Amino acid sequence: MLIKVHPDCRVVVSAPEPIDNDAVLKAVKRRGRLIYQQLRDFCKALEYITPRQYISGESHYYLGRQYLLKVIEPEDTQQQVKLLRGKLEISVRKKDPETVRLLLAEWYKTRAKAVFHRRLDALLEQTLWASGRPPLRTLSMKTQWGSCSPQGRITLNPHLVKAPRQCIDYVILHELCHIAEHNHSERFYRLMNQVMPKWEGTKNKLDAMANLILGDTLPFLPINR
Rank of each mutant, 00 (worst) to 15 (best):
P74T: 11
L88I: 15
R111N: 14
A105L: 11
C43Q: 13
I3A: 02
Y108E: 05
L46M: 14
C148G: 06
L63V: 08
I223N: 11
L139Y: 11
H159I: 01
D20G: 15
T110D: 12
P219D: 01
N204S: 11
G146F: 06
E175V: 02
D121Q: 14
E58V: 06
Y189L: 02
A122M: 12
W145D: 01
E75R: 13
T127A: 15
Q38S: 12
D22I: 08
V11L: 00
L206W: 01
L102V: 12
A105N: 12
L176E: 00
P158I: 04
T99Y: 05
R31M: 03
Q37E: 15
V12E: 07
R52L: 14
R10I: 01
P135C: 01
A210Q: 05
P97I: 06
P150F: 05
G32E: 09
L63M: 11
V161R: 08
T99A: 15
A27M: 14
P16A: 06
V195H: 09
P219Q: 03
A112F: 10
G32W: 06
D22K: 15
K70Q: 14
E181I: 02
T138E: 03
L191H: 09
P97V: 06
P158W: 04
A105S: 13
M1F: 09
Q151W: 10
D207S: 07
N157Y: 00
N193Y: 07
L39W: 09
K82D: 11
D22R: 14
V92D: 03
M141P: 11
A208D: 08
A27Q: 11
H184C: 12
E186W: 07
K113Y: 09
V171W: 04
V24N: 09
E98K: 12
Q79P: 11
P219W: 03
S59C: 05
Q53V: 12
Y61K: 05
R33Y: 11
L214H: 08
L214D: 02
D41R: 15
N157D: 10
L160V: 03
R40W: 08
Q78F: 11
H159A: 15
R153V: 05
N204L: 13
V11H: 07
K205G: 08
D76T: 09
A163E: 01
P51K: 10
T217V: 12
D20F: 04
H174A: 02
S185R: 10
A208S: 07
M209V: 01
Y48S: 02
I35S: 06
L68K: 14
E186N: 12
L25K: 13
G201P: 00
P7L: 03
L176F: 02
M209Y: 05
L34E: 15
K113G: 01
L104H: 11
L102Y: 09
L69V: 14
E73S: 14
C167E: 09
L102P: 00
T143Y: 08
R190F: 10
E98P: 03
N193R: 12
I19S: 09
N211T: 10
V71Y: 12
L191Y: 13
I172F: 02
